[in-house]
């Protein structure tokens, strides 16, 4: 049976890993800090996938980010997706060469759908995750690009359909309101849109503890739950959460081979 996935998202900005709350960034530590506090090679054995996003606000430096990606992925034998600031085929190539197995797109999808189609053609749908940032307001669900700074004219439902038509492989749906709060996922919105999609849906924004991950995993039509909460899942937090979730009989993968 196809398993559901637990994904960790690392938010990077200008050489540092960040805790994001409602898209405001707080510096946590650099690569050395990450290795010391997270022992990533070890932690990665309790993750189904890793996503690394560059959220540097002003001028993103893709080659600096690519070298961070290649530092993180050393001896990490899980799928790694990377993105943030991809605007061309050359940008995507650089991230693939730096150890990314998939790329994550966001603003490009709105600004230049033709390049998105070219990326789909070259690397296949399965290599491309479409990231979508939204806010829920009285007027409905509004979609934002450029690290949550620019509202676009599509409604959330229209935008999801538009992205699926572009041929992307998965949707990474992130609630700006819930981001970093630890209050739980925005299941209300998620339930409202999930049936529109015929591609896998990853939900993000709000997971603060194991219970939230479980709520997402138990919901039909959600392929994966993501968390970017460096504080709440520090040290053995994530491995312990995974082991407990497996012991509850949830449908997630077991890797019990002796290598």
């Amino acid at each position: 049976m196809l398993r559901k996935r637990i994904i960790f998202t690392l938010i990077h900005s200008d050489g540092y890993f960040m805790q994001s709350r409602n898209f405001r960034l707080q510096k946590v530590g650099n690569l050395l800090w990450l290795e010391k506090n997270y022992k990533f090679q070890h932690i990665s054995f309790s993750l189904d996938e890793l996503i690394i996003l560059d959220a540097t606000r002003n001028q993103k430096n893709l080659s600096q980010f690519a070298s961070i990606v290649s530092g993180v992925v050393n001896d990490v034998f899980i799928p790694v997706a990377a993105g943030g600031g991809i605007r061309s085929l050359a940008d995507a190539d650089l991230l693939f060469k730096s150890g990314a197995d998939k790329i994550v797109l966001n603003s490009l999808q709105y600004e230049n759908p033709l390049i998105v189609r070219e990326l789909v053609e070259k690397y296949g749908s399965q290599s491309i995750i479409a990231s979508v940032d939204y806010k829920s307001t009285a007027e409905g669900h509004l979609v934002y690009v450029n690290d949550g700074s620019k509202k676009i004219e599509y409604s959330l439902k229209e935008y999801l359909t538009y992205l699926e038509d572009l041929g992307v492989g998965e949707i990474y749906l992130n609630s700006i309101d819930k981001d970093g709060t630890g209050f739980g996922y925005d299941l209300e919105t998620i339930l409202n849109v999930k049936d529109l999609l015929s591609i896998p849906l990853i939900i993000a924004g709000g997971a603060g503890n194991e219970k939230h991950l479980l709520e997402g995993l138990k919901t039909d039509g959600i392929a994966a739950v993501a968390t970017a909460n460096l504080f709440n899942f520090i040290g053995d937090g994530l491995p312990n959460a995974r082991n407990h979730i497996i012991s509850l009989g949830e449908n997630i993968a077991n890797w019990n081979a002796n290598s």
Partner: peptide, 10 residues
């Protein structure tokens, strides 16, 4: 089924 087939499977 959703396509692509993504994730761990048995």
């Amino acid at each position: 089924i959703k396509i692509p087939h993504v994730g761990f499977n048995q």
